[in-house]
């Protein structure tokens, strides 16, 4: 303790303020702990064993991990240039683009799913996109990895990824924009005076400075994708052993009254979220150092 006693929250003058701070934080932390505890205490060893033995749940775990990872990569690839553009480049209509980028964040998830469904089923552009993806899927050797049943976007695995991407990328772009805004553009300017082009200054100077922001954006995108349910249900469906991801499993198990399985899968998602957050915080802290 190197803080002078008079500056500590425990000092007499600061006590009410300290109580307010700890009180507000404590209420929320207690709620999170209670939620986790309720889940942990409900699940028994045999429930976990049953989940591990269930091919449907194993498929959902695998599909969730794969789609979330693909979504996180795609979101980051889009978020880095988009965040840079919105943070650094003044252009006509930037405020409007900024608002549009936030739309998937504020829309009800089910509306995002419905919009995707309408885009792909009711518009010429959507049908053209669907045809393009179907052609690519037909060319790819998906049977090598046991995904030969993946043939289209709607009500199929690409639909899961697209539904996750529509929401997760909005969060990733917001994170990258803040990351670029927190770093002064002065170093990029100096790099340009020293001979770099704008592109070189971006790749060689700006990107290394926001490495921890990139990790944060990718993590957030992964976590958002893992929790996505509404758009997936509407756009990709909830077909077992096809488009079933972990939130879908919770929904399906709850709908047939199998609360034990739903709670077990929820616990798996909590564990995955904690592991990803811990990895991201550790990697982010190392990069920032």
């Amino acid at each position: 303790m190197t803080t002078p006693a008079s500056l500590r929250l425990s000092s007499r003058g600061n006590m009410p303020f300290g109580i307010a701070l700890f009180g507000a934080t404590g209420v929320f932390v207690a709620l999170v702990v209670a939620l986790l505890a309720a889940n942990v205490l409900y699940v028994r060893g045999e429930h976990v064993q049953a989940a591990i033995d269930s091919p449907q749940i194993c498929y959902a775990v695998l599909l969730s991990v794969c789609t979330c990872t693909i979504t996180a990569i795609l979101s980051t690839v889009v978020a880095v240039p988009a965040g840079y553009l919105l943070a650094r480049v003044p252009f006509r209509g930037r405020r409007f683009v900024d608002v549009l980028v936030d739309v998937p964040i504020v829309l009800p998830p089910i509306v995002v799913g419905l919009a995707l469904l309408l885009l792909f089923n009711q518009t010429a552009v959507g049908r053209w996109l669907e045809d393009g993806v179907e052609w690519v899927l037909a060319v790819l050797p998906l049977h090598w990895i046991g995904l030969d049943h993946v043939t289209s976007v709607t009500y199929d695995v690409p639909g899961v990824i697209l539904a996750q991407f529509a929401v997760a990328s909005a969060f990733a772009i917001r994170t990258m924009r803040v990351a670029f805004e927190q770093v002064s553009d002065r170093r990029e300017h100096v790099a340009q005076v020293l001979g770099c082009t704008r592109r070189q200054a971006f790749f060689w100077v700006a990107l290394p400075e926001v490495r921890s922001g990139i990790v944060a954006a990718a993590t957030l995108a992964w976590a958002r994708a893992m929790g996505e349910f509404g758009p997936i249900l509407v756009f990709a469906g909830a077909t077992r052993m096809k488009t079933e991801v972990l939130p879908t499993t919770v929904f399906l198990e709850m709908s047939v009254g199998n609360v034990e399985a739903a709670a077990t899968v929820s616990l798996m998602m909590v564990a995955a979220a904690i592991v990803v957050l811990l990895i991201a915080r550790t990697v982010g802290a190392r990069m920032a150092a």
């Binding site: 002065r186 020293l194 001979g195 070189q200 400075e209």
Partner: peptide
């Protein structure tokens, strides 16, 4: 060439890499 007041050193790389950036460009 410019030497700014705070040096404006580039982060996330070693000094050798940083000094070499104008030559790399």
């Amino acid at each position: 060439s410019l030497v700014p007041q705070d040096g404006a050193l580039f982060a996330g790389m070693r000094v050798e890499q940083m000094m070499g950036i104008p030559l790399r460009a």
